[in-house]
Design a protein around this nucleic acid. Structure first.
Lengths: 152, 152
DNA sequence: TGAATTTAAATCGCGCACGATATAATGACA
DNA sequence: TGTCATTATATCGTGCGCGATTTAAATTCA
């Protein structure tokens, strides 16, 4: 290993994982004022996006798309239910499964959230093409990491 | 807006923030077995990297580098102290400040952690140059977002 | 059919992360 | 100097996120 490479191992800013970690927190900070108006947290917003994309999903389906466990989703979905945005009902055709369905308020919220993605993109300072490339690279990396994790 | 762009607003996978969010979780998953051996969590590991880089920092200094609040760091550092990796002592020249200093065990742990970054890089499936570019782009984006957040 | 396995959610305990607030020490400056 | 503002850390409450475990339903297959 070169000397420069060794020094990189001592520099937190040179850690790719830390850039992801700190960028994630930065997104949280910039989303907060926008989502406060909607009464949503950042993870709740992402779940709502998933439901606006496809309503009436099972907890399992949402978890698969978001890479989250039921132990994370169940309480979060209960909060969305308590806030009147979704309903949680056992699937009659398979009583193990719980279907999450948007209420009218949950559907309506989508209109109020319409401006959010453009605001966020603007805050990143990235042009659309760069954002797309970054996005693609990150998804590829994530999927590669998860492939490694699965074979452990 | 084009039709394709509108559809992207409904597709969670096309959200840059979600790629960061899910990639962050993926890193957590792949780090876990490696860090379990060291008795560290992922955020604790990042704090240790910061301390290996520069020992005897104040809580404030660590927080500035890691973009974390004292309300996050104080309990985390107390756990590191309880595990014998650091000491926490008030700075005699400014009693408001707490200096975090590596113990011998904390210093020694660095050797055991030596292999970790290479293992992680390998799991990402990225070559060194791509990882560097991605890293640079993410830091730039994070700093840009934080600049926007500060002027709110 | 009936026992054993698998699957889906839920629950629990722990650690992170933040905002709001408290406390104590330092600095500013009238 | 004494008051007022600022700074550094700590504390509290809330919500994520996971692993381990539990419960109940569905599936497998002997």
């Amino acid at each position: 290993m070169t000397k420069a490479a060794k020094e990189d191992l001592l520099n937190l800013e040179k850690f790719l994982c830390f850039s992801i970690y700190s960028a994630g927190h930065a997104f949280n900070r910039v989303y907060k004022p926008l989502l406060d108006k909607l009464g949503l947290t950042y993870p709740q917003y992402l779940v709502m996006v998933a439901l606006w994309q496809e309503d009436n999903q099972s907890v399992r389906s949402i978890g698969a798309k978001m890479y989250l466990e039921s132990s994370t989703l169940t309480p979060l979905l209960k909060r969305l239910e308590a806030n009147g945005l979704v309903t949680r009902t056992r699937d009659p055709s398979d009583e193990r499964s719980v279907r999450i369905t948007l209420t009218e308020a949950g559907k309506t919220l989508r209109d109020q959230a319409e401006e959010v993605p453009a605001c966020i993109l603007e805050a990143t300072g990235l042009d659309v093409e760069t954002a797309k490339r970054l996005n693609r690279d990150l998804r590829t990396m994530r999927d590669q990491i998860d492939a490694v994790v699965r074979e452990l």
